[in-house]
Amino acid sequence: MDTAKPYLVAPVASCLGARLTRTSMEDNILSPRVQVSSILALVERFPGIDLVFPFMDTSVEARALGCPHDFKGRVPVVSAHPFADPGQIAGIETPDPYESEPMHNMIEVTGEIARVCERPVMSFVVGPVTLAAHLMGVTALVRLAAGNPAAFSEVLENCVRIVEPYGRALASSGASGVVILEPQLVFFPPRTYEQAVRPAIERLARALPRPALHVCGDTRRHLAAFGLTRHVECLSLDEAVDFAQAKDSIPELEGKTLMGNIPAVNVMHRGTPEAVRSAVERLVGSMQGTFFILSTGCDMVPDTPLENMEAFMQAAARPSAAS
């Protein structure tokens, strides 16, 4: 790890490893051995990576609970929501992460890359809102939040109960930190976050090492509420958020590390190497004197050009970028 830089370099890029090993996404998700090989290939190709992530797969917990899903050449997507009723979610038995194949696979991946990569590993769990959305469907969850806030809170608490042992198992296997993935959180207004989601996130974060919260989409109006979330050390946010402006104008973010937020699609996937370099330099320049984690706003697209990833790493390592 380069301690001279005032930031760590941690692109969410593990899926690019599949390109390097010429393996399918499905094989990487289903086989810990294949996924470890892909991540190792990525780290060997880009040794400037300071923090290593496994593949970002938001379906692990839902698959562990039997939700239907499909692959179609990418990380799996939950395709149906069999738990329409909050009572059904209350009745779900908490899976033993070592017995559940999807969870056990990721525990094995985390342990192995922590052992061989000689870098800190940040693993992923899904947050309570996203798991609830997988189980019930977003529309049902939105209706529940609007019509029965107490039942909504109870569903979130049950989702924390389901996820927490898995998060602890990832930590035991060697994860230095765990990112709570909440792509569905952006649906809900900040008041819902404050009243119902934040307590659940705090409870989950308290059980995890170096917890981070990742939320996709435009979260500018949620930032103060995110900043007030206890136990969460790091906020991983999408490109809609101007980090420097947020740090300057939102006092609640004091003490939180920001992680991000080079656009994964519009710059990393669709941009030119020059556009990538320029975006990295601009972000790093705007965060002068502030510790942050240089990353992508979200998971990279598997067919992101490798020359763009090279441009990202070169710009991240360049002394001028950090000055």
Partner: peptide, 14 residues
Amino acid sequence: AGEYFLADLVMAGE
């Protein structure tokens, strides 16, 4: 205007 969120659009649809 940022007063409503995606959840509110979903609810309006419902």
